[in-house]
Design a protein around this nucleic acid. Structure first.
Length: 569
RNA sequence: UCGGAUGUGGCCCAGUUGGUAGGGCGCCUGGUUUGGGACCAGGAGAUCGCAGGUUCGAGUCCUGCCAUCCGGACCA
């Protein structure tokens, strides 16, 4: 490519509304432009990177024996109703009507669609299968943000495994786990796996892949000593034992003006937060529910969703709370409540002599034995782990790391197979549902994650494996001799299999250098009259900033070798 | 969806007590330059987010709406 003909509109200033480094740099570098919130136009440079990321993903999934498909992105409502996700997906799914008034949806993921195709599997002899496509997904995110990190329209590689039994699924799952780690390695995106909530996907286990970044949206609990790492939506920790003494009788006492856990801690006759019950009134799919955690603990709503299967969860309004319990927030409790479900955090098992609101304004109970005095509908792990708590495996203090979720793999089991009739005959002649897994990785998000991990104050520092071009030949003067020398190198690089670009623009050195650094080509060959007089050019490494004079005769071979080495990531 | 902020040429911004839009970058032409975002001269490019209203007169004041960003909620 000749830069003089390339459409790569670089900007000296980042758009005012771009904040995340990857967002700012991808726009400034002329990789993409925003159309509207959560939708980006890929410009030639951006699309090249995107395609290189996709190619690496494709290679690795093909390496697993994956077969590439392309399924539609517009789906009939009926198929989503069959799986039940027409309702459970809520507002995340774009829904529209066609001219006949038929309900349709834009695909947020493709379990249902692949399952309809898989219904034609008939025999265990056809298994295992790994099917995938790289297709546009649409998600009506409440708040798109940070450039490509959270968008409403994006490309995802989603693969699906079909096995005769759980052992087969485990194998496919582990194979994807390994393939994903290789993918991130090749993309130059630092990654680690964490235990995760399966959310609306269903299924019994899942691993999320994370890369640490301030631009991320997920908090991950990590143990600095052992291997433990989990999404905060799933993480657990060890709590030190608390001596409650002997159970005493339930007693009500006056607490005028006390409205908070903290206030009750300092109130005469009150109790430490660790000896209080925090009662949260939540509405779960329309049912007013009491959720009880320890006074100093926070509720994690995803844990509550996972434990109850509820789809829509919100805190109750004050009026709803008063109507349900007869008191205002600050004096609420679950003692004696039987007309609303009470869900209690596991950390409260066996606790006695606790203090909690009495459902009468300005009154509290003390001497509460959780199991004696509460009608517990469900025990569940609901509390959010905090930094500094002890690792459940080894006791080391846990840390919280902000991360970007760059991939997610799920064991689905037979849920979709049963719904869509994906059944095969097994070796004994029984007809059995196929066991499925699903595995997703966002292409654009990984592109952005690579930028988050590889940039400096001048711009992007692309890994060779996904750079829009591996080498830019910067021609310093447009006189015949210099241009010809640059062009010879450029052509020879291409012949040697290097993805090269020649900067033949009529621009000053500073402009060319600044653009090359902003866009982030891994290598720059500077061709100028001074060097040519000595039969030399300069090679600059974007990552280190190092510049070396290299004889004209060696430069192509040297860069071909360096790119080849680096290309595998 | 809640809270906050912001909407003025492609990008970054200024615009006073209301008086008919300005600078920088970028772009075009000419000249001079040429190894780190040059300089000089000339030029093109704007329904000031949209719709109402107040006013002799609105980028500026009022009302409504829309959009975008940030934080939260949400998020396979």
């Amino acid at each position: 490519m000749r830069w003089s003909q390339m459409f790569a509109p670089t900007l000296r200033d980042a758009p005012n509304d771009a904040v995340a480094p990857s967002h700012r740099l991808l726009v400034r570098g002329g990789f993409m432009r925003q159309l509207h919130a959560g939708h980006y136009s890929m410009l030639p440079l951006g699309w090249r990177v995107h395609q290189k990321v996709a190619a690496i993903v494709r290679e690795e999934i093909d390496g697993l024996g994956g077969q590439e498909f392309l399924l539609p992105t517009m789906h009939p409502a009926s198929i989503w109703k069959e799986s039940g996700r027409w309702d459970t997906m809520g507002e995340i799914m774009f829904r529209l009507e066609d001219r006949k008034g038929a309900e349709t949806a834009l695909g947020i993921t493709h379990e249902e669609i692949f399952a309809t195709v898989a219904a034609e599997l008939t025999s265990y002899k056809q298994l295992p299968q790994i099917w995938y496509h790289i297709q546009t997904k649409f998600r009506d995110e409440a708040r798109p943000k940070s450039g490509l990190l959270r968008v409403r329209e994006f490309h995802m590689k989603d693969s699906y495994s079909f096995d005769i039994d759980d052992a087969g699924l485990d194998k496919a799952f582990d194979a994807h786990d390994e393939a994903y780690r290789r993918i991130f390695q090749r993309l130059g995106v630092p990654a680690f796996g964490v235990q995760a909530s399966s959310g609306a996907m269903g299924g019994n286990s899942s691993i999320e892949f994370m890369t640490p970044s301030d631009a991320g949206e997920d908090d991950v609990i990590r143990c600095p000593k052992c291997d433990y790492s989990a999404n905060i939506e799933k993480a657990t920790s060890a709590l030190s034992a608390i001596d409650d003494g002997e159970p005493t009788a339930l007693e009500t006492f006056d607490t005028p003006g006390v409205r908070t856990i903290a206030a009750l801690e300092t109130f005469e006759g009150g109790a430490a937060a660790t000896h209080q019950l925090k009662t949260l009134v939540m509405v779960l799919d329309g049912t007013t529910t009491l959720v009880v955690v320890r006074g100093d603990h926070q509720l994690n709503t995803q844990k509550l969703a996972d434990a109850t299967g509820a789809i829509e969860i919100r805190p109750a309004e004050v009026e709803e709370t008063v109507a349900a319990l007869g008191a205002h927030p600050g004096s609420l409790g679950a003692v004696g409540v039987t007309d609303h479900p009470v869900i209690v955090d596991l950390a409260l098992e066996g606790r006695v002599n606790m203090t909690t609101g009495a459902n009468i304004d300005d009154k509290h109970h003390r001497g509460v034995s959780v199991e004696r005095d509460l009608t517990v509908a469900q025990w569940a792990d609901l509390r959010e782990v905090a930094a500094g708590e002890a690792c459940a495996n080894c006791g080391t203090e846990l840390t919280v790391v902000r991360c970007i979720e760059i991939g997610h793999i799920f064991k689905l089991g037979t849920k979709y197979a049963e719904t869509f009739g994906v059944r095969v005959s097994d070796a004994d002649g029984n007809v059995v549902p196929v066991v499925m897994g699903s595995y997703g990785i966002g292409i654009g998000r990984n592109m952005a994650a690579a930028v988050e991990a590889h940039h400096d104050d001048k711009g992007i520092v692309w890994p060779v494996s996904i750079a829009p071009y591996e080498v830019v030949v910067t021609v310093m003067r447009l006189d015949d001799e210099t241009l010809a020398a640059g062009n010879d190198i450029y052509v020879a690089l291409k012949d040697a299999g290097v993805d090269a670009l020649i900067d033949d623009r009529d621009a000053r050195a500073g402009v060319k250098f600044a653009d090359a650094e902003l866009i982030g080509f891994p290598f720059r060959i500077t061709v100028g009259p001074k060097g040519l007089a000595n039969g030399e050019v300069e090679v600059t490494d974007r990552a280190t900033g190092e510049t070396n004079a290299v004889p004209l005769t060696d430069v192509v071979g040297m860069l071909a070798e360096r790119c080849n080495e680096a290309r595998r990531g």
